[in-house]
Write a protein that binds this DNA or RNA. Structure first.
Lengths: 233, 233
DNA sequence: ATTCGTCAAGAGCGGTGCTCTCGTTTCTTC
DNA sequence: GAAGAAACGAGAGCACCGCTCTTGACGAAT
């Protein structure tokens, strides 16, 4: 390819970006169901069919938004993880949990796109899985590093993971290298617990039930962290 | 009202029921987004406008389905709770968790309607909240009864709930009567953890990540139960 | 027997995703 | 620099959607 792109390529990239920007704004207002190609086109002063020059279908536009969303959430989580001292594993866990919650509450519809019910008829393509792993990789890294540092003192309260799960544990060890089976599944429980809470909060399940949600959340993820043996320094 | 309903009332009730049945079937196939009044009407051999004699809007039909869903899930959970010995609290917790998961996997779209991302533009009316509490009431009852029976030996691993949460704890005590603050929030964590897992499984988040999902689920809810101090008898 | 409420049907409104064609513009190649 | 190829925006149109309004038929109560 040539070093300097042609004018056409530049305007194409710019229009593509403008489409996703407008779409993201509409998504933030109306949610995934309200995302309309025609409305995007209208706002751009284009005719609806012109959008199809840039995105072959509504689903492809959705895919672009999903990838952007995973990257935005992943970046927020990574940044929160870097903020504190690397040896304070409990603090990193807490910071990262808050980063997920804060991002989700700030971008509820984008979060819904990532972790909510799948959009009917939409099938996430391969391209999304790379970005999808950014946030979970951070969690895995914390657990893994904490374990290697000998900072985990997990309480013994549940029966050990059955042998049937060892294959899955091997898979999950790609995310939490070096961690023994039992801790792998405690990590999984903490992870699903975290997102379970955030889901409930974003989807309005705590309405009229819980007021001090930030405090409640922190209490919950502290408990989940203690499950892993993450004790505050 | 008269003891015997008129023929008109009977046929009306029957048609209403037929509409919800067809709608539920379409929901099961296509999901909430694919639920179309016109398609329901087509399947009934009616014209679309006739449906509006029975449901003033699509949202009202959705509401009917949601209430039915809460009741179906609630009934399944209640039945699972009654199946075992009342004194085996750990067993009841496990059975009830499996009941939630089994029902959700058997009716993924209905479950999505209840615990997934909110349907865009739809606002759940007051009538749904009664049915909505059926399943959670069962969980609360188990925790409450186990505590009163002295069957809970919660491990001390997390800091106690902060004072700011005592108001919320009072609210939640309606569901878990007699339970102290700390256990209230452990119960909340276990509850969100359970639904967090089921959400991930129903929404496809475990695809290519976890194979033995039933075993993994059981391991997870066992751990969450241990958090509450629920030890197998 | 007549009135009155209920009902299904039909036409129609504004919206959607998407396809196809058509004339124009831009880039590439000779 | 001219010719061909590729990309592009506009427009019309298809089938679908939720929803509204009107019309005519039917059944129940007076």
């Amino acid at each position: 390819m040539t070093a300097s792109r042609t004018a056409r390529e530049r305007v194409r990239a710019e229009l593509t970006r403008e489409i996703t920007d407008i779409a993201r704004r509409q998504l933030a207002i109306e949610g995934a169901g309200g995302l309309s190609l025609r409305a995007v086109a209208r706002e751009m002063g284009m005719v609806s069919s012109a959008i199809y020059r840039y995105f072959p279908s509504r689903d492809d536009l959705l895919t672009a938004l999903i990838i952007d969303g995973y990257n935005a959430l992943g970046a927020a989580v990574e940044e929160a993880d870097k903020a504190g001292p690397p040896g304070d594993f409990a603090g990193r866990w807490l910071a990262v949990c808050h980063a997920v919650r804060d991002w989700a509450l700030a971008h509820p519809h984008e979060y819904t796109l990532l972790y909510g019910s799948p959009v009917p008829g939409y099938q996430a393509p391969e391209e999304t899985i790379e970005a999808r792993l950014r946030d979970v990789a951070v969690f895995g890294r914390i657990v893994s590093q904490a374990y290697e540092a000998g900072a985990l003192t997990p309480p013994d309260l549940a029966p050990p993971a059955p042998a049937a799960l060892s294959g899955d544990a091997d898979n999950l060890r790609q995310i939490m290298p070096g961690v023994p089976d039992d801790l792998i599944f405690r990590g999984l429980t903490a992870w699903t617990g975290l997102y379970g809470w955030v889901n409930f909060e974003v989807f309005g399940q705590f309405e009229n039930t819980l007021e001090e949600r930030r405090d409640g959340f922190e209490q919950s993820v502290r408990t989940l962290g203690a499950l892993l043996g993450l004790r505050p320094v």
